[in-house]
Nucleic acid binder design. Structure first.
Lengths: 211, 211, 211, 211
DNA sequence: CACTAACCGAGACGGTACGTCAGGTCTTTGC
DNA sequence: GCAAAGACCTGACGTACCGTCTCGGTTAGTG
């Protein structure tokens, strides 16, 4: 009854995922149809329905395929010792990617599907978000060891506070998603909203020493 | 050519918006159809197409209608002088609303539509988010005046740092959306990720004095 | 629930039936599809499914439409008094129609549908066959009155004996369907298979008198 | 290229033809599919496509298989000398077979395929109809020799006049297919439609003598 | 007796059509 | 005289089969 994966044609799989991603860019999420994907991929509709349970999973797998290349090595965030600079660089890159028209539509489509499909959200968390979040937490952990972050800080919350605002501004278009915004978020997040006493800025540090 | 608003039947308008909101709860976003709304509202399809340009705008207007009751008075966040406590209370309320099954599906639908429709996003920012954001900024401004927030803080960024993580965790289901999480976010956001020097916790204050 | 016939668009109805009949000629029964009819008729598929329960009924209605023109006047077979001549002429015409390439495929399609659908067979008997059979029986009755047919003859059986062989040869292609065959059938049917005693041929008669 | 018949697996062949015939009874002609036959027969689809060019030929072969048992001996109609009685008996048997629910659907399917496929019609004429028609003609010939049939009678036409009406009534359901109908057809066909002169009934004969 | 070519069951594949559903437009009709 | 009702064309849905194709595994006949 269930299809036999050993007989699966890899070329069709790749064609479908590529077609899905490309069509997302070209026609947008609302006009993405299984029929369109099948035609673009030169594939029968049944071949899509045989292997994917929903359009959302196709989109998800399309992203998975993109990340297949660097699959082996774990993601690593830069660690120069200067946390503020490193986070700024990474968040600027995030902003650049979100602003990249090639990824805009596909990413929004993925976000939408996750919003409405808990199962897909779990898969996303496990397969796509987890490695990235692990890298983020790793960088923060290293800073924590160096005394640059509060010892009792929940690193997951820290990650959310840094990246959450950017993602939200992008999704809701609640304002321009600029480099300046990214910088502001990093600074505000690190220093906190409360005022700092005189000379209490935790400045750039190298090897744990302030510079 | 354009319909004459003076002839618009208010009862139909309300029936349509109510039907849309109710159906969102019952069948979810994916299965919400114009046809279904029309039938539920006891209205011809044309009556919907005549007054709304897209399904997203209907959903949006349905939310607008909900907020119509308290339209006159501006939203106000509690201001006891204790910023941490006030923010905690408000964020806990936000979490509760997002976890309310009555609002879950409709809110996700609205978020989805905003994600894919810039025009709708602008309308959302103006009509629904603006009053709320204004209230948030107002409360933060008051705290800033009381010396509880950094004087150079961009209050919009501050709002994003506090509410962004919660919205994101809800949308992406990247983790359980609990009261504890809300509390952690408030604490971490206010104090910052950096460690605070000894005795530098900006504690609860009343009338600007630490308690 | 059921569609309201008063709102039915006559132009669509005619376009569908015409398209069905034409396509039957052109592509044959096996390749006749609802989808093809809809495209050819410039009509949505749903418009076909709304008004017809099956492909067979569409074909049937297409034939009904052909006969709509001469609907008012009842069919009449020639009655010169010479039964043999009249039947020969009529059966030759039948043969010609069955051999007409314009009607071949459509008629076979109709025959096939009737074979497999009793309800359709009843409709065929009532709407298409009945007037024709009535005319045939009428002619035979007139001959019976003139003493040219056995008084105890079941006219329905008589009709079957004359037209059955021709229809069968056409359907099963059990042999060439020629004018000669038609003539043989008429002669054999009228005279019977048994030998006639000398001078007993019931020859051509005019006004009941043998000629 | 062409498959080698010597390697053909007889068990598969029989399973396929049996499955086809059984499925015809059970689901009817319209729902008979190659895929269904293959599954029912426990056979790969390719095994059907390898040996049969079309569904119609499979059906045809299924009938051939049924007749395989009595293949060697030629079919023989009863010949008691009483033509009327013999024909009546045979036609009654024909009626019974056509009314047999086990054969109804399969026979209609075969008739349909023949109607639309001239090649199949030829095969049917040669392999299935020919022996039967030969037997019928043989019986009539014997009667002709005995002076019970007109000497100039075309026996093929005679066969058609006797069996055509029955087949037609069955295919078109133009009326109840009863024993009485069969009897009427035989009587009318033998005596002809014209009235017979006094004492001219060609009665039962034994050895050519009237009884 | 081993080899090898072919048939076999199985089932994935690119397709076509199915019958249904909804989108958005246009027409009719009843209040 | 508008708006409900709903028929219409369009097009995508998800399913069923089509006829072709590959895949291992028998199963003959050959060398």
């Amino acid at each position: 009854m269930a299809p036999n994966p050993s007989r699966r044609r890899e070329s069709s799989r790749r064609a479908i995922l590529t077609a899905a991603f490309d069509l997302l860019q070209e026609v947008g999420y609302a006009k993405l149809t299984i029929e369109g994907i099948a035609v673009r991929a030169g594939v029968g509709k049944q071949t899509i329905y045989r292997w994917w349970p929903s359009k959302g999973v196709v989109i998800f797998d399309a992203f998975l395929m993109l990340n297949e290349g660097g699959a082996g090595e774990a993601v690593l965030l830069p660690d120069t010792g200067d946390l503020h600079a490193d986070l700024t660089a990474v968040l600027r890159a995030t902003v650049a990617e979100l602003n990249d028209p090639r990824y805009d539509q596909p990413l929004r489509a993925l976000a939408t599907e996750i919003t409405h499909d808990p199962e897909l959200a779990a898969a996303y968390a496990e397969r796509l978000d987890k490695p990235m979040r692990h890298a983020k937490r790793h960088r923060l952990h290293s800073a924590q060891q160096a005394g640059q972050l509060a010892v009792d800080l929940d690193l997951d919350v820290a990650v959310d506070i840094i990246w959450g605002p950017v993602l939200n501004r992008w999704l809701q278009r609640s304002g321009p998603l600029t480099i300046e915004y990214a910088d502001s978020v990093v600074t505000a997040a690190l220093n906190g909203l409360h005022p700092r006493p005189r000379n209490d800025r935790v400045g750039r540090t190298v090897d744990g020493r302030a510079v």
